Amino acid sequence: MNDLDTCLRCTRDLRDHELGRYLCGSCEDQTATRLAAIPGLFAQLDQHLARGSSNGPAVSGSKTAPAPLNLSVLNLQTERGPVLGPLETWVRDWEFSGYAEVDEAGSVTDRLAHACRTLRFNLGRATGRHPAVDEFAEEVASIHRTLVRTVTGEKPARHVNVTCHCGQPLRITLDVRAVTCPGCGAEYGHSDVLRLPLAERRAAA
């Protein structure tokens, strides 16, 4: 049970009916929506396997023959890659807590569908009981962003450097949801961190 009165992910104040939960209703809904979308995005990766179909065109002029497949996309589709691997790790973690059940039978696509389905089904209970559910929500968001950018060709969010009130520089993206200053521990939500002053660039030595 969350002893704080704020969401651990977006740091928004919890409403009366959300008190005791680790995530607010909005963050829970966003995570559920991403879990529902991940299998469909994963299925579209096959269309981007050809080298040059995503992440830019193949580079010419190399002395060695280019790989026939886009290895970064192929890695996303592997059993222990950055999509299925983390999600099944969370299923095992939730199984230990009594929230889910691991199923490693079938293809990678079948296993991914099961992982997303069982995590989504048990998300409500985990939101109220699992103290690391905010880390889970962030990992799901990261996986979803990676798949969307691979499938659509969307460029990564732009990074900027801002300065905390204590003087600590913070490197953030424009779509950041929340950040904690490593210098003083101050916590900023999305709108608050975007109001911080830009960090001054250091002069070249």
Score class of each variant (00 low, 15 high):
111 R>P: 00
125 R>I: 04
134 D>C: 08
101 E>G: 10
123 L>S: 04
174 L>A: 12
99 Y>G: 07
90 W>C: 01
156 P>K: 06
171 R>P: 01
146 T>Y: 03
158 R>Y: 13
108 V>R: 05
101 E>R: 15
147 L>H: 03
138 E>V: 10
109 T>W: 02
108 V>P: 02
166 C>Y: 06
113 A>N: 12
165 H>N: 03
167 G>Q: 07
160 V>E: 15
110 D>M: 01
133 V>Y: 08
143 I>D: 12
130 H>F: 11
83 V>E: 00
155 K>F: 15
98 G>R: 11
133 V>K: 11
110 D>F: 02
173 T>M: 00
145 R>G: 06
154 E>T: 14
146 T>H: 09
144 H>G: 00
85 G>L: 04
110 D>K: 01
87 L>Y: 07
103 D>W: 09
106 G>S: 08
146 T>W: 03
146 T>S: 14
164 C>D: 14
172 I>T: 06
144 H>P: 01
122 N>W: 09
83 V>L: 00
136 F>W: 13
150 T>W: 05
112 L>Y: 07
121 F>C: 09
105 A>C: 07
100 A>T: 02
144 H>W: 06
154 E>I: 07
90 W>L: 02
143 I>R: 08
170 L>F: 01
120 R>D: 12
103 D>C: 10
167 G>N: 02
140 V>G: 01
105 A>W: 09
130 H>R: 06
149 R>T: 12
103 D>I: 10
110 D>Q: 07
86 P>I: 04
112 L>C: 08
123 L>C: 09
154 E>C: 01
164 C>A: 13
143 I>F: 11
114 H>L: 03
109 T>D: 12
87 L>V: 01
130 H>E: 13
100 A>V: 04
92 R>Y: 04
141 A>W: 07
147 L>G: 04
151 V>R: 09
139 E>G: 05
106 G>M: 07
86 P>M: 07
120 R>N: 13
86 P>T: 06
170 L>V: 00
138 E>G: 12
144 H>S: 03
124 G>A: 14
99 Y>H: 12
157 A>I: 08
111 R>F: 02
120 R>T: 10
145 R>H: 11
132 A>W: 12
102 V>D: 11
137 A>V: 07
101 E>D: 11
87 L>H: 00
110 D>V: 02
87 L>C: 07
166 C>H: 01
122 N>R: 13
117 R>Q: 14
146 T>L: 13
130 H>L: 03
102 V>C: 13
153 G>I: 12
150 T>A: 09
83 V>R: 02
136 F>I: 11
161 N>D: 14
104 E>A: 15
107 S>C: 09
93 D>E: 13
84 L>R: 09
109 T>M: 06
172 I>C: 08
143 I>V: 15
141 A>Q: 13
96 F>H: 10
111 R>T: 02
99 Y>E: 03
157 A>R: 12
125 R>E: 14
153 G>D: 13
149 R>Y: 11
167 G>V: 10
128 G>K: 00
86 P>L: 05
152 T>R: 13
174 L>W: 08
109 T>I: 04
129 R>P: 00
92 R>W: 05
150 T>D: 02
120 R>V: 06
107 S>F: 05
168 Q>G: 02
83 V>K: 03
